[in-house]
Design a protein around this nucleic acid. Structure first.
Lengths: 128, 128
DNA sequence: GTTCTCCTCAACCAATGGGTTGATGATGAC
DNA sequence: GTCATCATCAACCCATTGGTTGAGGAGAAC
């Protein structure tokens, strides 16, 4: 018992997107590449701070930098997104399938009450 | 300029899933509800630590606890996942559309080189 | 050449996060 | 009633994070 749960690349991806500034950068990079300076411009923080944020995104594989003369052009890498969507979708669907099954069971119990003393009148159903 | 980027519920969701232990709990809860003790069992850490993790998941809205006598039954809430998938899909699709457009442009330039001095032989195209 | 711009690196600091231990409340077993 | 079990709360520790300032390197501009 207790495998230490080895480090997963998803750790870095989720962590990177947990910061609103970094999510905003990703959002902006989705519509166009940008230099570090351009990215930093709207935010109320130093360029160095933005550079750090970019390093986090880069380490997570969400972004790559291309040296372009004096500037660095930042480019969004969309492939990593698939990792996340796959993880999320897998468990979301698994969970929803389970709820559907539960609903079916409850409906069945409702139709043929085998034991009337067992009143399942709690709101346990309807996963809304 | 520099709106402080107001706190977004996605902050908590992404942050919650950035931890491998918490992702594992979510994975397990997808197939069945569980008590705190059952959840804690496989991990090499104290029950209190697991309780903290659950508080994080709960604050993010990923999980609810139902008092069930002495135990607390933990239940996965799949709705929040939609928030994430929507965010992710939006920007992934935006980015991919952009790449497709770029590919088209490059293909066009390749077919009808309007200015031969401008050698675009860099690997700028073909996203992978 | 000098100077200016773009970006990164390094050191620092306050706050947060993930873990620990110890104590406590509430319920179930006897 | 007493005692054990399940879970939480509180205090503490150390590592990480998100920001700062200051210094420096590599290119462009002159």
């Amino acid at each position: 018992m207790a495998e230490p749960l080895r480090k997963d690349p998803l750790d870095d991806v989720f962590a990177a997107l947990a910061d609103p500034t970094r999510r905003d950068m990703v959002a902006r990079l989705a519509s166009a590449d940008a230099t570090v300076g351009q990215l930093a411009d709207p935010y109320d923080m130093s360029v160095q701070a933005v550079s750090k944020h970019l390093k986090v995104l880069e380490a997570a594989g969400l972004v790559t930098k291309v040296k372009d003369g004096q500037r660095r052009t930042v480019h969004l890498e969309a492939e990593v997104f698939d990792l996340m969507t796959k993880w999320i979708e897998r468990y979301r669907q698994e969970a929803e399938a389970r709820y559907r099954r539960l609903d079916a069971v409850l409906a069945e119990m409702d139709r043929t009450p085998t034991d009337p003393t067992n009143d399942h009148t709690t709101g346990a159903g309807a996963p809304t």
